[in-house]
Computed example of a mutant assay.
Amino acid sequence: MNFPSSLPARAVIREVGLRDGLQSIRTLVPTAHKIEWVRAAHAAGQREIEVGSFVPPRLLPQLADTAEVLAFAKTLPGLRASVLVPNLKGAERAIAQGADLMILPLSASHAHSLANLRKTPDEVVAELARIRAARDAAGSSCLIEGGVGTAFGCTIQGEVKPAEVLRLMQALLDAGADRVSLADTVGWADPAAVARLCEQALRLAGERFCCGHFHDTRGLALANVHAALQQGVARFDASLAGIGGCPHAPGASGNATTEDLAFMLESMGIDTGLDLEALLALRRQVAGWIEGEPTHGSLWRAGLPSTFARRAAR
């Protein structure tokens, strides 16, 4: 593997707690609280937020108000509001509601794909082609991201071969995805595996490979982010307070914790544009709304070191 001589000067953290986080807990967070979350995250400097998912409310009642949260997010200057869509019907809603980006999840694990979407991976590729056609017919500027999940292994199927991940990534691009991303849905990845697959993904997709999504099931999310950074990846999904999981991946914890990831990047001299004190204040607020639900992370316990403030002031 050939590591770049320097790390990216800037990295983007896309907040996914409002979707990937809330869909995995029982507590129903009121719409007003979600809107406050988006407002406060934007005030803290976040410019990419996944605000929900257009799935049937009976399946995920936690996300039934995605249209309302998206409508508010669209009023905030400079914010790119994204939504997850499981199919063409969800994509049509995303287009109609003016989402800036829609993410179609595809599982590289055949077994997980059937459990999660009731489609084979190649059937999901065909669905993306229909979504692209609908987007273009509507004259929409909404970007389409094909998210390749269980890219490093699967609790249902076991091994997922890198060659299959790359085949599906190319298939999504050929079907009309504007960009693609990789997700360690169940937290099986390690830094060496991340470096290898990211290197291959960048060689295949170039700048259209846009994002890494790492769950912290075994405590390796930040190490895996670092491995991806060394390959030149500069956008990562994260969840405030580390909330979340995967409905079809028992034991999978939430994503990399937003505030911990921001602290790591800023400490390394990589600009995130985020106000860490504001993020920690928001974390306390959100944790209060979901009291009793599992949360994760370390920065909130230890706080910012005194040297950090002096370094930031220079």
Score class of each variant (00 low, 15 high):
residue 282 L to C: 09
residue 259 E to D: 02
residue 140 S to K: 07
residue 161 K to E: 14
residue 225 V to M: 13
residue 130 R to N: 11
residue 286 V to F: 14
residue 93 R to I: 02
residue 57 P to G: 01
residue 44 A to Q: 07
residue 100 D to N: 15
residue 144 I to Y: 12
residue 304 L to N: 13
residue 1 M to Y: 00
residue 177 A to T: 11
residue 249 A to Y: 12
residue 284 R to L: 15
residue 214 F to Q: 01
residue 311 R to M: 14
residue 7 L to E: 05
residue 81 A to I: 05
residue 94 A to I: 10
residue 105 P to N: 02
residue 129 A to V: 08
residue 32 A to G: 13
residue 203 R to H: 13
residue 206 G to C: 05
residue 76 L to Y: 11
residue 125 V to S: 01
residue 253 S to L: 14
residue 94 A to G: 12
residue 244 G to F: 02
residue 231 Q to D: 03
residue 305 P to T: 09
residue 98 G to N: 06
residue 282 L to G: 05
residue 145 E to G: 04
residue 166 L to H: 03
residue 139 G to L: 09
residue 18 L to Q: 01
residue 308 F to E: 08
residue 298 S to Y: 13
residue 270 I to S: 07
residue 154 C to W: 02
residue 29 V to L: 13
residue 310 R to N: 14
residue 67 A to C: 11
residue 110 H to L: 15
residue 125 V to H: 04
residue 74 K to P: 00
residue 247 P to I: 03
residue 190 D to Q: 12
residue 113 S to F: 14
residue 307 T to N: 08
residue 238 A to Y: 00
residue 119 K to Y: 06
residue 205 A to F: 01
residue 293 E to W: 15
residue 114 L to H: 03
residue 293 E to I: 13
residue 136 D to Q: 08
residue 288 G to F: 04
residue 128 L to K: 03
residue 216 D to C: 00
residue 77 P to V: 08
residue 282 L to K: 02
residue 79 L to A: 07
residue 117 L to F: 14
residue 258 T to Q: 08
residue 167 R to E: 00
residue 119 K to E: 08
residue 170 Q to W: 01
residue 255 N to V: 02
residue 189 A to H: 08
residue 85 V to L: 05
residue 67 A to L: 03
residue 173 L to K: 08
residue 177 A to V: 09
residue 269 G to S: 04
residue 188 W to V: 15
residue 179 R to A: 15
residue 245 G to D: 08
residue 190 D to T: 11
residue 7 L to A: 05
residue 266 E to P: 11
residue 299 L to V: 04
residue 81 A to K: 06
residue 168 L to Q: 06
residue 128 L to W: 09
residue 233 V to E: 05
residue 113 S to T: 07
residue 309 A to M: 14
residue 299 L to S: 06
residue 161 K to M: 09
residue 309 A to N: 15
residue 263 F to T: 03
residue 166 L to P: 04
residue 230 Q to E: 15
residue 204 L to T: 11
residue 216 D to M: 00
residue 175 A to D: 01
residue 103 I to T: 12
residue 112 H to E: 08
residue 93 R to W: 09
residue 274 L to V: 00
residue 51 V to K: 05
residue 80 R to M: 10
residue 85 V to Q: 06
residue 244 G to A: 03
residue 303 G to V: 13
residue 161 K to D: 13
residue 267 S to K: 09
residue 134 A to E: 01
residue 223 A to N: 03
residue 239 S to K: 03
residue 55 V to D: 10
residue 76 L to V: 07
residue 65 D to N: 13
residue 225 V to K: 11
residue 120 T to R: 11
residue 232 G to W: 01
residue 280 L to H: 10
residue 279 L to Y: 06
residue 154 C to E: 01
residue 108 A to K: 05
residue 176 G to H: 12
residue 196 R to F: 12
residue 182 L to Q: 05
residue 72 F to P: 02
residue 310 R to F: 14
residue 254 G to N: 01
residue 55 V to W: 03
residue 146 G to D: 00
residue 41 A to V: 00
residue 234 A to M: 07
residue 281 A to M: 09
residue 233 V to P: 05
residue 123 E to K: 09
residue 163 A to D: 14
residue 311 R to F: 08
residue 95 I to D: 09
residue 203 R to N: 13
residue 26 R to K: 15
residue 164 E to S: 11
residue 56 P to V: 02
residue 229 L to W: 08
residue 269 G to E: 04
residue 26 R to H: 14
residue 62 Q to F: 00
residue 42 H to T: 10
